[in-house]
Nucleic acid binder design. Structure first.
Length: 499
RNA sequence: CGGGGCGUAGCUCAGCCUGGCUAGAGCGCCUGGUUUGGGACCAGGAGGUCGCAUGUUCGAAUCAUGUCGCCCCGACCA
């Protein structure tokens, strides 16, 4: 048997390892449709966990869900110049609405549409058009709406979860009476994303504004959360955009203020997608497959009955059922524990490995010996697969919440340590190519440098395949001069290769 | 969309260069048996119009052209 469940290992071939983890974890697979994935039940359960937590956070901050059309009239996309430019190259366009049987038995599109429809790559324009109707008075503001939806961006090089032609996400769209309120909203949502990433996904992120070159098409300012993957690359894991009055002007989203004079709204948009699943994998998974933080694991504990005779079976199963009930009465982070009994007729080793590969935080084996001793055999996913400890059953039940907490924290701490180990403060230009030249086995990571928000910086970094990811808001001020332009800057930025 | 590679069983691949009997292996799957506290062993079995189309040929997995898809590297992006 191979030493590890996943082949190749991370060190051998990182991209291939990623795909094997997705497969072994039964998360998703490629579909017959170019660039589109099928999210399998286990992957979707994980997404539903993320959705549930985020949705709660959105609602707690006053947002409500709604749903807008999948199709956007072509002319809508044309309304904001930069927006068109940004998305024009990756749009799926619907031009016909009917099929007819051709002479050779094949279906031919007919019924040409007068105005083609674009399958939404994002919904600013269609939602803005509705806001223009809904908003008349300052009393209508703010409008705080989120939608859970699928979007399509015709990507040339798809990668499961990270970049597929169709993906699932949420997009929040808000309209405000003042600039200050809209900026506040933009930052509030950025903060929610950062909290979610770190608290629930155990994925440390840097949050802050991106340079103009990395801005969302049509935005005044784009903020992102950036996480380091285990190959040292950055993953933009969420974005929050301050759109200023750009879209409001383009779409005539206006309101009458208290004095009766008319002005344009200030709008924001923000989103995270199923890409987070890719980020979760590349942050925590190891050479034995997925490692799920307990907070988002669809099942936190799997009970594996071990039995030979029918008598054993009945007794062991009864014990499992009773343990499941006891566990489900316990809570961790304000939720009942999620427990599953896996009594499938499979060999014990096979079954256990499936759960290892699917990243279940705790595996508990219960056999006749445990029954007699009143104990359980416990394995934690953050430790090697063969590490098992025997615990008295009562103690296990009592300690489970602490165990989950320590796994959750351990994963976060490990990820932080990895990020720190692969980050460096660089203070002269020459050090940058040197840092990023470390290719292959040694992931380069993040460089913390002084750079101005200037096209010259992007141009200088381009040959290194490196970009400015963001300028973290919570880093302390450290005035310096841009390594490329000599302009004064207040604080360091993160530069890295990215997904 | 540019450069490179690859499409043969559910998965990983051999066979192709040099066309020729009924297209192979390992893993996985199914059945039976022996096993069983840790990804078992033995025996038997199912499963493939060799990505698709056209062409060359008596004959194509094998040669040619086209096409579709996938992977890697660029460009683009959540």
């Amino acid at each position: 048997m191979p030493k590890h469940a996943i082949s190749p290992t991370r060190g051998e071939d990182y991209p291939e390892w990623y795909q094997q983890v997705v497969r072994a974890g039964d998360l998703a697979e490629a579909s017959p449709v170019r660039g589109c994935m099928v999210i399998k039940p286990h992957g979707f359960a994980l997404w539903e966990r993320m959705q549930g937590i985020l949705d709660g956070m959105f609602k707690a901050t006053g947002h409500r869900n709604a749903y807008f059309p999948l199709f956007i009239p072509l002319s809508y996309l044309e309304q904001e110049a930069k927006h068109v430019e940004g998305f024009a190259k990756e749009c799926a366009v619907v031009t016909h609405h009917r099929l007819e049987l051709g002479p050779d038995g094949r279906l031919i599109p007919t019924g040409k549409l007068e105005e083609p429809l674009v399958v939404r790559p994002t919904s600013e324009t269609i939602i803005g058009a509705m806001y223009a109707k809904w908003i008349q008075s300052w009393r209508d503001l703010p409008v705080l709406i989120n939608q859970w939806a699928n979007v399509v961006r015709w990507e040339m090089r798809p990668r499961v979860f990270l970049r597929t032609a169709e993906f699932l996400w949420q997009e929040g769209h808000t309209a405000h009476a003042t600039e200050a309120e809209a900026v506040e909203e933009t930052l509030r949502m950025l903060e929610i994303y950062a909290t979610f990433a770190e608290r629930d996904l155990a994925m440390p992120v840097w949050k802050g504004p991106k340079p103009a070159s990395e801005r969302f098409p049509g935005a005044v300012e784009t903020f992102s959360i950036e996480a380091m993957m285990q190959d040292g690359k950055a993953l933009q894991a969420g974005t929050s955009h301050f759109l200023g009055q750009n879209f409001a002007r383009a779409q005539q989203i206006k309101f009458a203020d208290a004095t009766g004079s008319e002005s344009f709204c200030w709008t924001t948009s923000w989103g995270v997608s199923t890409r987070l699943i890719g980020g979760l994998i590349m942050t925590h998974a190891d050479d034995d497959g997925l490692v799920l933080p307990p907070r988002v694991a669809p099942e936190q504990i799997v009970l594996l009955p071990i039995h030979r005779s029918d008598d054993d079976r009945a007794a062991v199963l009864a014990c499992c059922e009773s343990l499941k009930k006891q566990l489900e009465d316990r809570r961790w982070r304000d939720e009942p524990l999620r427990v599953k009994i896996d009594d499938r007729d499979l060999r014990g080793g096979d079954k256990a490995w499936q759960h290892v590969k699917q990243g279940v935080p705790l595996r508990v084996e219960i056999g006749p010996r445990d029954l007699a001793a009143g104990a359980v055999s416990l394995a934690c996913r953050d430790k090697p697969p063969k590490d098992r400890q025997t615990l008295p059953l009562e103690q296990f039940v009592a300690e489970v919440p602490d165990l989950l907490e320590s796994i959750q924290r351990g994963l976060f701490d490990r990820a932080v340590a990895f990020r720190e180990a692969h980050s460096a403060r660089l203070d002269d230009q020459a050090a940058i190519p040197e840092f990023f030249a470390a290719d292959g086995d040694q992931p380069a990571g993040f460089a913390h440098v002084h750079v101005a928000d200037d096209p010259a910086v992007a141009a200088a970094l381009d040959p290194l395949k490196v970009t400015v990811r963001c300028t973290p808001l919570n880093w302390s001020d450290e005035p310096g001069t841009c390594l490329f332009t000599g302009k004064p800057v207040q604080r360091r930025s993160v530069i890295a290769r990215s997904y």
